[in-house]
Design a protein around this nucleic acid. Sequence first.
DNA 1: CTCACATTTGAGTGATCGCTCAAGTAATCT
DNA 2: AGATTACTTGAGCGATCACTCAAATGTGAG
Lengths: 204, 204
Amino acid sequence: MKRAHPYDREKALDAAQDLFWRKGYHATSLKDLEAALAMKPGSIYAAFKSKEALYLASLERYFLSGRHALREQMAGAGTVLGGLADHLRSHGNMTGETSDGRACMIVKTLLDTTDDDGAVSDRARAYFEAMRDEFARFFRKARDNGELPPDADPDRLARRYQANITALRVEAHLGGDPAGVKDLAASMARDVENLQVGGGTHQH
Amino acid sequence: MKRAHPYDREKALDAAQDLFWRKGYHATSLKDLEAALAMKPGSIYAAFKSKEALYLASLERYFLSGRHALREQMAGAGTVLGGLADHLRSHGNMTGETSDGRACMIVKTLLDTTDDDGAVSDRARAYFEAMRDEFARFFRKARDNGELPPDADPDRLARRYQANITALRVEAHLGGDPAGVKDLAASMARDVENLQVGGGTHQH
DNA sequence: CTCACATTTGAGTGATCGCTCAAGTAATCT
DNA sequence: AGATTACTTGAGCGATCACTCAAATGTGAG
């Protein structure tokens, strides 16, 4: 090997992810990417084959880091349901003008692609379902360790949980009312905790 | 006036709305619109000033018809909470390959525009909040007529309700599992009904 | 140093973008 | 009828799109 990559691949991917996440696939132009990555078109195409491939790489990165964050948070949680509830609350506090205050990149991708966008649409769908499986895994664990009643349906709960996360991120995307978003997250988190056997039905 | 409009404005708007809704603002080209509306570029610009203006007109149409449908459904409902619950269930049954099985156009617009998309982004946000107000109005009504306890917070409930609708439409957008979506809607609807005073906490 | 090659460069590709407007067509007037 | 006006037409505008490639540049080996 003659020369180490003089561009920082991680840094470039990070910038690409941020830009794609913010502007979306179709609204992001090569010009935008050239500026964000500080790379000329030729370099971009040498490093990442195409705009689509770069988007796929960015999306994968987003998915992996999101899943990692979830697993980390769950690993440090006292109870499974408590961890899931706290995860919702965490999302409720991500409301800034930074990347925190944005809708989920996977959902954004799902909504602005169609079948004729090729692999992008398919992969977004796959990641979305992978996250759902991830949630289901935790709910199953909660059922198996007695936090949830034996007849609880982990898949159903996971779908509902994911729906809450999705909507929460959309609300955060609006950015106008951080307190309202936090409140919404708290309300969702409480519902998760109330699933616990013997965890009475506290309202408000 | 010399000549009646030989193009059908309603029909054209309808086609534009359908196309924009499906493909999104940025991914829809003038070529696409020419085909969908069966109009040449000149006619399109004579009738609707610009692509952006046409999108705004389509979005307004979408908003008005959605709000109208909600009001109709609520007008025919026995109780306010029952009507809201049924509205969720209706969304749960919209899962086809047609326009039924799509995410909310307002949310789609919110997610694939930024501030530099000008009026489009602002209007989408306004419509989203108008729908929330609409829901809040119904929850307030439910509180005032005794369906909800006097200390219920209509704005908070509206936000939560809208979050459910949003997420439900995203799920329907995936299209893979109609039964799962219907089930999700049923679960959300039950939660709304359980808000009723004396309406015990039925699980499952 | 010189050579060999990996990597970067950026002007330039054809295609498509949103959009315009002079010319053409059809309907309604006198 | 001819004149007038309302509307449609579609070739084509400059700008931008995603992308390419021959030339320039930087690096490690001998």
